[in-house]
Write a protein that binds this DNA or RNA. Structure first.
Length: 832
RNA sequence: GCCGCCGUGGUGGAAUUGGUAGACGCGCUGGACUCAAAAUCCAGUGGUAGCAAUACCGUGUCGGUUCGAGUCCGACCGGCGGCACCA
């Protein structure tokens, strides 16, 4: 209890915490911080830098989600602690504002997407400020600002110059609902990742980025960064590297069949080959048939040699009409048609083997054709069984009468190679048949064109004479023109195509008439390099100054959603590597460390959604209990990476905690009687708490840090607390609940901001307990506990344990086999 | 189907990495204050038995290793996430 001579001289207009929170106490502090420019990062400061980054949001009309609050607060806490520890911290924020939802909103409400974006940004920014997040607003960026997307376009031109952006007609995934082409990464289970509509295949001329050129490095360099394991695994799987060989099989028209065939019978005009990719060239002797994807171009070339061509054509038509989803989900029954009239020659033994088409072979992977080795591949085995094709064992070790054996082993039935190890045989056999070793990836090049209005115009012009010509860099940005209608079209043309006087332009090369590219970039473009722009957001000579990049990069900690692992995270690593290769950024990996937050579910355990009416609005929570409570609750709710349902009751709990903190004002002893009233155990507790909170923030274990502070406050409430100790406590509380911490700190008579203090250190000696509780076990079961001096010797502990009456009760009449002592922890008496 | 992660009170979750399971918070029960309620404060709160001391059981299930297992190993059950005919 506080009975100190002088009453504390706390001057405040707020009588209670409720008074403070309800009457603008938090906002008042936010204004002060803004004035003091506390959160601005300083280029080239002598202090050690830390670049803390959280994915910038898409400013939707729905406003901030409590899920945003979770990750922004978490990194805010880290940033604030780092600043207090003396680092020069860059913790920026901006807007990833191009994209479909805004465009749709704009269409529906007849409002220009630019206006809608501005409104949404204003809302988001206000919400963020109300939360007391310590972003450096002087570095705010907006991907839809021409001053920003000028450089997005500029980077595109660099990609073009290096041959990494190219235009190609290819089948793409088309979302009929969004009326837009999608990248491979944006298709989930055959559906559009945004709206869930089933995608269709369409042939279209598209701008493509050659990300596959970087596939190998995107895998390899993961070794140099600190990402969560599951993030690395997901990227590695997505890139899907496999090593094998490309082998060529000659195709022959069968003389025997020629007489039967009505229109067949011609000899092949030139030699035709089927090239396959295989990871198992060692099984070549077991290749008993071949399979082409229905889309394989060879089929058309051999039309006159295939006498069942009408049947084949029917099958191809059927396959074409199946969506990607159907083709992959009807995974059980395999179907196919033999190409009658032609055979392939197995180059290993010159045997004629049949050629089939089947949709279990994908045109988009490898060469669109396979050699089928039913003895050693599950799918081929299934197919061979169904169509009665030959199965020859060439690797020993399995039971191929029952199932395919995909393992390794010694070669059999492989002529001169019998007895060889399968691993070794891969190289030898490839060489012998004139094949070449090859690495294949699942990753596909990035379809970069979108047929919409609200995106960065692709800075290219098409001239009949000069073909595709890039816009000169000095003429950037190519600004989005105003249009009357920005509805997407079903024809696959961007709404920009309708603006004739924008589309029709002059060729920058020959001056002749030319047309602008009317497709825009995908919403992933602006976010692929935004972390670079934060280093130098106002530069209009370059996307960022090289020296500034050198100072700030890499991003020391990057937090974002798991859903971006194979999209934004991969894309931005690719762009950064490209810029690195151009000598424009100083490091090849942009993010030193990547972590991911868990989702915040609704109170009912379901995903928050407007339609379910279970959305928690952060503004309401801030109004009711304050930003500090919201922040603290989201940290306390559970481990940062876990998905956790919202709990309104839980919010009450942390609010009570803050009220207790406020009431500690009355428990504060003046400096005069520190020694008499502040007992040593609270001091010990404080230092333990400092240690725990410091370490937990670093490890992102915010929930246990909050719990430690609660324990401290509970104790302080009972014991009373010295002014000095209270100050230290407020500093460690400040990153979590900056408003109340700043207020109480100032109420204690401190003129200087709490955020200009330095992070308290802890004294290891103080943390050490003088006495410990020793657990006494008999045969591993707890039977007694006793107080003992810390660092009690093993012998003393043993003696003490054996002296215990309760222990004696359990050892009576038994033989003591041994006694195990764990220092400062327990004694286990083992009896028989 | 394959790969990865995870199963702890009524509830969100702790547990020094093999050493007293259930910290902290919520809820609940009882009490104080109040005309009353709310708020607040105090006490209790894994289960079973007992007035109690205490005993037994207890971290998805079964088994194993160990003086000692929530933690390690094996099998199974359940949940979540990723990939899914990738040759």
């Amino acid at each position: 209890m506080s009975t100190g001579g002088q009453k504390n001289m706390i001057k405040t207009k707020y009588k209670t915490y409720d008074d403070f929170q309800k009457n603008g106490g938090e906002n008042a502090w936010q204004k002060i911080w803004e004035k003091q420019k506390l959160n601005q990062a300083e280029d080239f400061a002598k202090k050690e830098k830390k670049y803390i980054l959280v994915e910038f949001p898409y400013p939707s009309g729905a406003g901030l989600h409590v899920g945003h609050v979770r990750s922004y607060t978490a990194l805010d806490i880290m940033s604030r602690m780092l600043r207090l520890q003396g680092y020069n911290v860059l913790y920026p924020m901006g807007w990833d504002a191009f994209g479909l939802p805004t465009e749709n909103y704009a269409i529906k409400n007849k409002i220009h997407p630019r206006i809608a974006t501005e409104q949404n940004i204003a809302t988001f920014k206000k919400q963020m400020k109300n939360l007391g997040l310590s972003f450096d607003w002087s570095r705010e960026i907006d991907t839809t600002d021409p001053k920003y997307y000028r450089w997005t376009q500029w980077i595109f031109l660099q990609l073009y110059k290096k041959g990494l952006a190219y235009k190609k007609k290819m089948p793409i995934n088309w979302c009929p609902s969004c009326k837009i082409g999608l990248a491979h990464e944006e298709v989930v289970d055959g559906k559009c990742e945004r709206c869930g509509a089933e995608v269709e295949q369409r042939e279209k001329e598209q701008w493509i980025l050659g990300i596959t050129k970087y596939a190998d490095r995107l895998i390899k360099d993961l070794d140099t960064v600190d990402y969560l394991d599951k993030i690395k695994t997901q990227q590695v799987n997505w890139i899907g590297k496999s090593e094998g060989a490309e082998l060529k099989f000659e195709v022959r028209s069968l003389p025997a069949m020629q007489s039967i065939a009505l229109q067949a019978g011609k000899k092949l005009e030139k030699k035709e080959y089927i090239t396959v990719f295989t990871t198992r060239p060692d099984t070549l002797f077991g290749a008993t048939y071949m399979v082409l994807a229905p889309e394989h171009p060879l089929i058309k070339n051999l039309e006159s040699n295939i006498y069942n061509y009408s049947e084949v054509k029917k099958y191809i038509e059927k396959a074409k009409n199946k969506s990607e989803l159907q083709r992959t989900s009807l995974d059980k029954e395999k179907t196919g048609v033999e190409l009658k009239g032609i055979k392939a020659i197995n180059p290993a033994n010159n045997e004629e083997i049949p050629v089939w088409i089947a949709d279990y072979v994908l045109a988009s992977y490898g060469t669109g054709a396979i050699m089928a080795v039913p003895a050693h591949d599950e799918r081929d085995f299934e197919f061979a069984k169904k169509f009665n094709l030959e199965i020859i064992e060439v690797i020993s070790g399995g039971n191929i009468r029952k199932e395919a054996y995909a393992g390794v082993g010694k070669l059999v039935n492989s002529g001169e190679f019998d007895g060889l190890d399968s691993e070794e045989a891969k190289k030898v056999i490839t060489k012998k048949v004139g094949g070449k070793l090859k690495t294949q990836y699942k990753l596909r090049d990035w379809v970069f064109s979108r047929q919409h209005y609200w995106g960065e115009p692709i800075p290219m012009v098409y001239c009949e004479k000069c073909k595709w010509v890039p816009i000169p860099e000095k003429d950037l940005p190519v600004e989005l023109p105003d249009v009357k209608h920005y509805e997407p079209t079903d024809t696959g043309e961007s709404p920009l195509a309708a603006i004739k006087d924008w589309v029709n332009t002059k060729c920058p090369k020959c001056g002749g008439p030319a047309k602008r590219e009317t497709d825009t970039m995908p919403n992933w473009a602006g976010s692929s390099w935004y972390f670079l722009r934060y280093c130098d957001p106002k530069n209009n000579k370059a996307f960022a100054d090289a020296e500034k990049l050198k100072y700030w990069l890499p991003v020391d900690l990057y937090n974002g959603g798991m859903e971006h692992t194979t999209l934004h995270l991969l894309y931005s690593r690719f762009w950064n590597k490209f810029l690195y290769d151009c000598g424009l950024v100083p490091i090849s990996e942009p993010y030193a460390k990547r972590v991911s937050h868990g989702m915040v579910l609704a109170e009912d355990g379901k995903k928050m959604s407007k339609s379910l009416g279970n959305v928690v609005n952060p503004d309401e929570v801030v109004n009711n209990v304050g930003a500090d409570s919201l922040r603290l609750y989201e940290m306390f709710m559970g481990p940062f990476a876990d998905t956790i349902p919202w709990s309104t009751e839980g919010v009450k709990g942390v609010r009570r905690f803050l009220e207790k903190v406020w009431s500690l004002r009355e428990k504060v002893e003046t400096q005069n009687n520190v020694e008499t009233h502040c007992n040593a155990s609270l001091r010990t507790r404080l230092h333990k708490t400092i240690k725990k909170v410091t370490e937990d923030i670093k490890e992102m274990k915010f929930n246990t840090a909050v719990s430690a502070m609660m324990i401290f406050v509970n104790e302080a409430q009972k014991e009373g607390i010295s002014k000095d100790d209270f100050k230290k406590f407020l500093i460690i509380l400040a990153p979590f609940a900056p408003h109340i911490a700043a207020e109480l700190f100032s109420q204690l008579g401190n003129k200087e901001s709490i955020f200009k203090q330095s992070w308290p250190s802890y004294d290891e000696n103080l943390i050490k307990d003088k006495t410990i509780k020793l657990a006494i076990q008999v045969n591993g079961k707890l039977r007694d506990t006793m107080e003992a001096a810390a660092d009690i010797t093993d012998a003393e502990a043993k003696e003490k344990a054996l002296a215990s009456e309760k222990v004696q009760k359990w050892t009576e009449g038994k033989e003591i086999v041994k006694v195990i002592v764990v220092k400062n922890r327990l004694v286990n008496v083992v009896v028989k």
